[in-house]
Design a protein around this nucleic acid. Structure first.
Lengths: 157, 157
DNA sequence: CGAAACATGACTTATATAGTCGGGAATCGG
DNA sequence: CCGATTCCCGACTATATAAGTCATGTTTCG
């Protein structure tokens, strides 16, 4: 009972922050892995390894050699936070290691599946609708900002 | 990259299902751990251990000896899914093992914290508003049901 | 008293997480 | 074409969590 039910892993968090650094360059020029990691005070090799993984999924492009580095694979406005998290951590939401739609129950738990599906849907409604460009510009979509304005949204429950 | 970013653990899922069995009894009489586990085909000892944990948090009450068992600690309409998950898995949402409000960033990642807080808020908006009684009765709040009606809500993305 | 049932803690096994490390392969600048 | 830069790849480690199992003790009803 140490980890929360939802846990954005270190790897996923680093990945998002690294891509935000790339997204912040309007010319999308190559930036070395070490510079990316240093600018956000993240563990260099770990982040580099993760960036290479992201290249395989096409989210970033890379160039070797002197004056090489990483750049975004497509415009920052077309990469959502969900895209990044899925690329490094797999499906957004699972129940007992399986997808919510496969969680089928009997008896009094019958309708629990609906709750899990709704949970995933609510996650998607946030993470699939914020792009890297949004975060860099500080322009979070209004509907999502509103969620942070409910009483106690910034406090533990 | 085996586990999704959000993972309802086996323990949490068993806990919810066990409490649903209790919630389904309108007289709230004591039900033995073994009967609870068997009725939902869950591992007996594991579930029993979890129920004892839930007793410590007050969500269930227990009685030893012959004709003993477990019963809900308060009305099913006053226990939300979030209550159960928190009791067994801790905080609903964390980022790199810490609470979202503590995730503070510099530079282009500055506004990322807002995204994490919104994510937690959206989770809460579902899990804190469905009670055990709702699930047993199959009466999921309309606002939440609506989430499951968006296109592809029941399909992997 | 004896059977039923909760209570507790130790134990096991497997997997995931969060990294580090070393060397190889490409590429650019001079 | 040489050498510095930088990505690329795989192996390795340590720690923790997850998901159970098991043995034993303690209450309590009938």
């Amino acid at each position: 009972m140490q980890n929360g039910a939802v846990n954005i892993s270190a790897k996923a968090e680093y990945a998002v922050r690294a891509l935000l650094v790339l997204a912040a360059d309007p010319e999308n020029k190559a930036i070395p892995g070490e510079a990316i990691a240093r600018s956000q005070k993240m563990p260099t090799k770990f982040v580099e390894n993760t960036l290479v993984e992201l290249r395989r999924t096409g989210l970033v492009a890379s160039q070797r050699g002197a004056s090489g580095g990483f750049r975004l694979g497509r415009p920052a406005a077309h990469i959502t936070i969900a895209d990044v998290i899925r690329a490094v951590d797999g499906p957004l939401a699972e129940v007992r290691g399986d997808r919510p739609e496969n969680a089928v129950y009997e008896g009094p738990a019958q309708h629990l599946q609906t709750v899990w599906v709704a949970t995933r849907a609510s996650l998607r409604s946030v993470l699939e609708h914020v792009t890297l460009a949004d975060v860099v510009a500080g322009k979070i979509p209004k509907r999502i900002l509103k969620l942070t304005e409910v009483p106690d949204a910034w406090r533990p429950h």
